[in-house]
Simulated assay, not measured.
Amino acid sequence: MSGEQKAKAKVEQAKGKAQEATGKAVGNERMTAKGRAEQAKGHAREAKEKMKDRFKE
């Protein structure tokens, strides 16, 4: 399950980065902010999974 969650985190990060870039390109600050939020969500999920892995050892 951990690998699945890590992959989901990477997808969220990539999706957020694309949304942020699109928002910047069209000048839509709201879309840019949503993209940053999506990236942050992905980073948080990844950090959580890394922490879980450390406690497994």
Rank of each mutant, 00 (worst) to 15 (best):
G3S: 14
E29K: 15
M31F: 06
M51E: 14
E46A: 13
G35N: 03
R30L: 14
K8T: 05
R45N: 11
A9Q: 04
G42K: 08
E29A: 15
A33L: 04
A44Y: 13
N28H: 00
K6F: 04
K56G: 06
V26P: 02
E38P: 05
G35Q: 00
K34M: 13
E29Y: 12
K8S: 05
Q19W: 06
M31A: 12
A47I: 15
E12Y: 02
A33F: 01
H43T: 14
G3F: 15
K52M: 10
A37R: 06
K48A: 15
E20M: 10
Q13Y: 04
E12V: 00
N28V: 02
K52W: 02
A21T: 13
Q13H: 07
S2E: 08
R54L: 13
G16M: 11
N28S: 05
M1H: 08
G35T: 00
A44V: 11
E57G: 11
G16Y: 08
M1Y: 05
D53Y: 09
R30S: 14
E4D: 08
E46D: 15
R36A: 11
Q13V: 03
G42S: 09
R30E: 15
T32K: 10
R36E: 12
G42P: 04
K24M: 04
K52L: 04
K41L: 06
E29Q: 15
H43V: 13
Q5A: 07
Q13L: 00
Q13T: 03
E4M: 13
K6S: 07
T22L: 09
N28T: 00
A14F: 00
Q5L: 08
K10S: 05
R54P: 00
R30I: 15
E4A: 10
G42D: 08
Q5Y: 07
E20A: 11
A7R: 03
A44C: 10
Q5D: 05
T32Y: 06
S2D: 09
E29T: 15
K15P: 01
H43D: 14
R36Q: 12
T32W: 05
A9V: 06
A25T: 01
E38D: 13
G23T: 09
E29M: 13
E38L: 10
M51P: 12
R30D: 15
D53P: 04
S2V: 06
K41T: 12
S2C: 07
M31H: 05
N28P: 00
R54T: 10
A9R: 00
E57L: 12
